[in-house]
């Protein structure tokens, strides 16, 4: 039995999203939380790429000896790939900012535990 690769990809994307939310919610280590969030973003990226997949499709480039109707019928959908590329860039930059903030906070508190650093500070204000 051949498993439908598109269905499996959707399934993987769904699992990545669920694992990501789980990690962000239940793991105390901030680096692990961020890895979880990266999983979540990757799950969404995989979901979008999978949507653009077309079984037996061709690359969406109109080559010289290709008829337009053949191209229109067989080419996969290009938009999802463009979106994912943008989202990967956004994900990388937010990841960098988050890790930078964690470095600063680790220097300040000497810990990367979410409950210690990001706990409730109460009403004590400067």
């Amino acid at each position: 039995m051949i498993i439908d690769s598109q269905l499996m990809s959707f399934f993987t994307a769904g699992s990545l999203i669920v694992i990501g939310i789980f990690a962000a919610l239940f793991l105390d280590n901030l680096i692990k939380k961020i890895i979880g969030l990266a999983f979540l973003a990757d799950g969404v990226n995989l979901f979008i790429i999978t949507m653009g997949y077309k079984a037996g499709g061709i690359v969406y480039i109109l080559l010289p000896n290709m008829t337009i109707s053949n191209f229109a019928q067989n080419a996969s959908y290009p938009l999802p790939f463009a979106l994912v590329l943008t989202n990967i860039v956004i994900g990388a930059s937010t990841l960098a900012v988050m890790l930078g903030l964690i470095i600063v906070l680790n220097k300040k508190h000497g810990s990367i535990s979410a409950s210690k650093i990001l706990g409730d500070k109460g009403e004590k204000i400067e």
Binding site: I21, A24, L25, D28, A114, S115, L118, G119, D120, K121, G122
Partner: peptide
């Protein structure tokens, strides 16, 4: 509704 992150993310989810 305090400022603890774990609390916030719990309510968000």
């Amino acid at each position: 509704q305090n400022d603890s992150f774990n609390n916030m993310i719990f309510y968000v989810v």
